[in-house]
């Protein structure tokens, strides 16, 4: 009975794996279908008497991250900059206490950012594949009410359950075709310059330039870095955190590189920073082969 030889990701025996006692990382996350109530008992109930309310309540009592929408509006969109700044300053304090040298502090910040970067590539790619205009709340509501009207009376209950349990529609419905993978260094850097920067800081970065001296070097310019704006300049570059994010994204997109930051103040922008991306030689070699 309890032999776990094959464990198909979509049919979890909830008796042996109750709701949310965590996932077993030897098996990986176990998905439950987002539109079906989790316990088999309630499926039967909602199937026979169409009790969408019981289904909904059973569903909400067992929240699972896999049922959540990837829609950016599905969650709180913002927290205060102050809340982030305090977390960030504590992160830096901790790194400072645990380190013996400036470069070690920066390495730790970089590592924290890297963890974020490797998670962002797929998510942002996915989101930027959604056709523009989809998912503004009103249109998604309209979409759903239309389906429930058109559907036959048998499936109406299930559709109701679906609309009530999911605040937002699945983003996948707004995608007609996925955004193509970025293959050229310039493309992926533009993705960072625009999509990633807007996601992180609410605006595109101020400039993206190619080094005139070295083939593998590009520079992203931010004249007022958001995360370190309250930190008076020291010999520690706190924006190594952002370097880590960029490097994480580029690494997971198969553009191995090294990202560093240099502060290049200008009269009106005292905190102006230049992020220097140095691709590894293999990236250039691959480019040469493609051309």
């Amino acid at each position: 009975m309890k032999q776990k030889i094959i464990n198909p990701s979509t049919s979890v025996n909830t008796a042996t794996h109750p709701g949310s006692t965590g996932y077993d990382y030897t098996m990986g996350p176990q998905q439950t279908l987002p539109d079906l109530p989790v316990s088999s008992g309630t499926i039967a109930a909602s199937g026979t008497n169409g009790g969408s309310s019981t289904a909904a309540s059973a569903h909400t009592s067992l929240p699972s991250v896999y049922n959540g929408s990837l829609h950016p509006h599905a969650h709180n969109q913002h927290v205060s900059l102050a809340a982030f700044a305090f977390l960030f300053q504590e992160l830096i304090s901790q790194a400072r206490n645990a380190s013996k040298s400036v470069s070690e502090i920066e390495m730790r910040l970089h590592r924290n950012g890297y963890h974020i970067g490797i998670r962002l590539l797929e998510l942002l790619n996915f989101r930027s594949s959604v056709s523009p205009g989809f998912g503004s709340t009103s249109s998604s509501r309209a979409f759903f009410s239309k389906t429930s009207i058109n559907s036959s009376s048998n499936t109406l209950a299930l559709n109701n359950a679906l609309t009530t349990t999911q605040d937002e529609p699945s983003l996948a419905q707004g995608i007609s075709h996925m955004k193509r993978r970025d293959l050229k260094p310039v493309e992926i850097l533009q993705f960072i310059h625009s999509t990633v920067w807007t996601y992180l800081f609410g605006r595109v970065s101020d400039d993206l330039v190619k080094s005139s001296e070295r083939d593998n070097e590009y520079m992203l310019v931010d004249s007022a870095p958001m995360l370190s704006q309250f930190i008076s300049s020291t010999n520690v570059q706190c924006d190594f955190f952002v370097c880590g994010i960029i490097e994480g994204i580029l690494d997971s997109a198969s553009f191995p590189c090294n990202v560093t930051i240099h502060s290049v103040p200008e009269p009106n922008f005292q905190q102006r920073a230049v992020f220097v991306v140095r691709f590894e030689q293999q990236v250039l070699e691959r480019e040469a082969l493609r051309a």
Partner: peptide
């Protein structure tokens, strides 16, 4: 609150 308290140094 901004430039002193949020400065880790």
């Amino acid at each position: 609150a901004d430039y002193v308290m949020k400065n880790p140094f």
